[in-house]
């Protein structure tokens, strides 16, 4: 019980400390607002910030979905053909090591449509863990099981469906959890790079906007929303993965 509430207790303590330091040292609000000022800024315009959050989350989840479909199917293509593996693997790694902020401006110019370009950016970041994890999972069954399937005359297709895909499922799900957080990061980075030329509605844009106007409490409020969204995505996808595996009987 105590370990479970410990983080909340610590957080509360930090907030109280933060508020008291800001008040006692009379830190100007444009340098560091206290938590009460941040809450006040949120309550002043909750609708605007929540709409922005919804916009960022839409980009995040569309990107996650696209990354899951692309990453999963490319891993399967790679698992079924050595040629595909040789062709895909180096490019997937190249994509992984290219920093998103460096290619985001290009993508935004090329794609044109702001929403689509944000999704493309976030997908690029979210793709690799899903792809790599699924590929690892597909290759995870011991060779003896492959021999066994061969012994009973199972072809590639049956081996894929009855052995490799079920074996890859837990790996895919943990990739999904990692990529969920990364998709949010990708969406935020892309919004920051796009700035006012972008979709102009996401939370990262609100942060930029607030920083230009020196509205620090509003900036903090947007930051807190992003942090809460990131944590929720992580926990939500973790719970989703466990539920799927339990339904599959491997809980």
């Amino acid at each position: 019980m105590i370990p479970r509430i410990a983080p909340f207790f610590f957080g509360l303590l930090a907030l109280v400390l933060w508020e008291s330091v800001v008040r006692l040292a009379e830190v100007p609000v444009y340098i560091l607002p206290g938590p009460l000022a941040v809450v006040g800024a949120f309550l002043a315009d909750p609708g605007g910030l929540l709409v922005s959050l919804a916009s960022t989350l839409t980009v995040t989840f569309v990107a996650l979905l696209v990354a899951a479909v692309l990453g999963g199917s490319m891993a399967i293509a790679m698992a079924t053909s050595r040629m595909a593996q040789a062709a895909i693997q180096p490019w997937a790694v190249a994509l992984q090591v290219t920093p998103l902020p460096a290619i985001a401006p290009l993508i935004i110019i090329w794609v044109g449509d702001p929403f689509t370009s944000l999704v493309v950016c976030a997908t690029i970041v979210a793709f690799f863990p899903l792809f790599a994890n699924t590929a690892t999972g597909l290759a995870s069954p011991p060779p003896e099981l492959g021999d066994l399937f061969g012994l009973y005359g199972a072809g590639r297709w049956k081996t894929l469906v009855l052995l490799r895909l079920p074996a890859a499922l837990p790996y895919f799900l943990s990739g999904l959890r990692i990529s969920g957080g990364l998709a949010l990061v990708g969406a935020v980075v892309a919004e920051l790079v796009a700035g006012s030329g972008g979709f102009a509605s996401g939370l990262a844009y609100r942060i930029l906007e607030a920083s230009f106007r020196l509205e620090m409490p509003r900036m903090f409020a947007a930051l807190v929303l992003l942090a809460v969204a990131g944590i929720s995505i992580n926990f939500g996808l973790g719970a989703f993965g466990r539920a799927v595996l339990r339904r599959w009987g491997d809980g």
Partner: peptide, 22 residues
């Protein structure tokens, strides 16, 4: 084999079913 090499997600009966299923 030396290891039982069962499908970890399948029940005993489903594991035994495998050769027939294939």
């Amino acid at each position: 084999f030396q290891d039982a090499t069962l499908l970890p997600w399948a029940s005993t009966a489903d594991n035994v079913w495998l050769p027939l299923r294939l």
